[in-house]
């Protein structure tokens, strides 16, 4: 528990620092950070899946489901609180994940990637043709309130920034705890050798489905956060290039460390907004080169720069050393 407690304190401190710093940041940067945090939450989900050895090329699916459900709840059903909207979006995506997860759990590598891609594009096709939700134009979402406080023109940037930072921090902490748990270790084992895991007597498919549902819940939360801050949603939330960006982010971050995904997300947002402004015709080129460099020189992502792999706790490591000494003397005899 002590490692988790340590992380909780560390993340809380980082959050407080971030919220204080936010008071002094310009509007455009606050918005950029808000988007980076919201998209980073989706990337967290991909990291959970990548630890189990699969990459979804259709995370736009749950991103859009979370976004549309939050948007519809706000416009049609009069839900006004931002936190409730995020919870609704996340829950709806998790339910979708619970339906698709068990089916997708049989698939690996390319087939998993393609099937998730297909599902997200089917949703895209449906959304584009659904005039009830605005077709390809989407619809605007009114500004919600936050825990009883109303959000207006002047404080909205900071309010959304605070909301997404707090939610992103809490979710990152939960994902970190999950990654350290026995289920988290099982995911790594599955990625390495699922045949053996099955022979150990536990269900690989169930583990994969659970990872998918967790990723869906995270994707839905990210979608809802994005919609709330943007005030608009359209079918592009489910388009494959959007999913590609999430994969890009997850690869950049690597699965060694959950917080790394926010660094990757921020980097992506920075590259996107700067190149949109200064070199609109070559920003994909810059992105592509960047991705290639990462794959070539940091194949385990930026997280691998600081995250140390989990090892035996100190006491156990000590016992292992003594046991090794005993083994050595036995062998010598």
């Amino acid at each position: 528990m002590s490692r988790n407690l340590h992380s909780t304190l560390l993340y809380s401190a980082a959050l407080v620092a971030l919220l204080l710093a936010g008071l002094m940041l310009p509007q455009w940067l606050l918005f950029l950070l808000t988007m980076a945090a919201s998209h980073g939450v989706v990337g967290l989900g991909l990291i959970v899946m990548m630890r189990g050895g699969v990459v979804s090329f259709g995370q736009g699916l749950v991103f859009a489901i979370g976004g549309y459900v939050a948007g519809l709840a706000a416009t049609r059903y009069g839900v006004t609180d931002a936190v409730v909207l995020v919870l609704l979006g996340s829950a709806a995506a998790a339910i979708a994940g619970a339906i698709a997860g068990p089916l997708l759990a049989r698939y690996r590598s390319i087939f998993f990637a393609m099937l998730t891609l297909a599902l997200s594009m089917v949703l895209y096709g449906i959304l584009v043709k659904s005039s009830a939700v605005g077709g390809s134009d989407g619809f605007n979402v009114p500004r919600p309130s936050l825990l009883g406080f109303s959000i207006n023109e002047t404080n909205s940037d900071y309010a959304f920034f605070a909301l997404s930072s707090v939610i992103a921090t809490v979710l990152t902490l939960l994902v970190t705890i999950y990654c350290r748990s026995s289920r988290g270790l099982l995911s790594l084992a599955i990625r390495d050798n699922e045949l053996r895991v099955e022979y150990l007597g536990t269900s690989v498919r169930a583990a994969m489905a659970i990872n998918f549902i967790i990723a869906a819940a995270l994707g839905g939360a990210g979608g809802a956060l994005t919609v709330i801050s943007l005030g608009h949603i359209d079918p592009n939330f489910s388009y494959w290039t959007r999913s590609g960006e999430f994969v890009f982010m997850a690869i950049l971050a690597g699965h060694a460390s959950a917080p790394a995904v926010f660094l990757a997300s921020l980097l992506l947002e920075l590259v996107r907004s700067f190149s949109n402004k200064y070199f609109p015709d070559t920003w994909q080129l810059a992105l592509g080169l960047f991705l290639l460099l990462i794959i070539l020189f940091l194949p385990k992502g930026v997280g691998s720069l600081w995250a140390k792999p989990e090892r035996l706790p100190r006491q156990a490591a000590e016992k292992a050393k003594q046991a090794a000494a005993r083994n050595a003397t036995e062998a010598a005899e």
């Binding site: 390319i110 990637a113 690869i251 920003w283 080129l285 992105l287 592509g288 080169l289 991705l291 794959i295």
Partner: peptide, 26 residues
């Protein structure tokens, strides 16, 4: 990249795709 993980290779070609998109625009 030969012999690397299949999904990683997909990403390499995705990067290539992004680059070629802009190159053909140029």
């Amino acid at each position: 990249f030969y012999g690397r993980d299949e999904v990683l290779l997909v990403l390499v070609t995705y990067a290539l795709f992004l680059i070629l998109e802009d190159v053909s625009k140029l």
